[in-house]
């Protein structure tokens, strides 16, 4: 009990628990891999871009909770979420409009087969799922930091 009294009296800063930090360190790469796995397997199993993106975003949330939001924000940097969303949107548009340029409808992947890409439909869907996943991951991360920043004084991420 003495420890808690000391902490209350001292009013010292809340220090993250090393146990939570170590667990997050260990679990994180596997969660990240799992998120990417779900993203890549959107076409033929449960999952897809949205789910995978959220799981990848979760990695950042875990870091933020275990190590402190400011620390994580410094590590991620302000540009990364924005860059992710931008890249994802560009990739999506590129695939969508690409099929239009080849004379088919928007996002009609089968037409890429004419360029000699095997399983054009499948890979097309994978690619778009991946783009969506990247967008979602970027948005989840960005929103998390934006909400956290809103509470302590309006500096946005």
């Amino acid at each position: 009990m003495s420890d808690s009294e000391r902490r209350v009296e001292r009013g010292g800063p809340y220090v993250g628990s090393p146990i939570i930090m170590a667990t997050v360190r260990v679990v994180m790469p596997f969660v990240f891999t799992f998120g990417l796995f779900v993203m890549f397997h959107g076409a033929d199993s449960s999952g897809g871009g949205f789910q995978g993106g959220v799981i990848v975003g979760t990695v950042v949330l875990m870091l933020g909770i275990a190590f402190g939001i400011d620390t994580t924000r410094e590590w991620i940097g302000p540009r990364l979420p924005v860059a992710l969303v931008g890249t994802g949107v560009l990739a999506f548009l590129f695939t969508g409009i690409g099929s239009v340029l080849l004379g088919a409808g928007f996002l009609e992947y089968a037409v890429y087969g004419e360029l000699g890409i095997p399983h054009a439909s499948k890979y097309g869907i994978e690619f778009v799922e991946l783009a969506i996943g990247v967008i979602v991951a970027g948005i989840v991360t960005g929103l998390f930091f934006a909400i956290a920043a809103g509470a302590n004084g309006g500096e946005s991420a």
């Binding site: 800063p13 993250g16 190590f67 590590w75």
Partner: peptide
């Protein structure tokens, strides 16, 4: 420094660390 963790988030990495992590993630995948 209210949220400063008791241990730094980012540390110096070595190339073996990189490959260990790569191998673990690949196997898991």
């Amino acid at each position: 420094n209210v949220e400063s963790p008791s241990q730094p988030l980012v540390r110096r990495g070595t190339i073996t660390q990189f490959f260990a992590l790569f191998a673990a993630a690949f196997a898991f995948y």
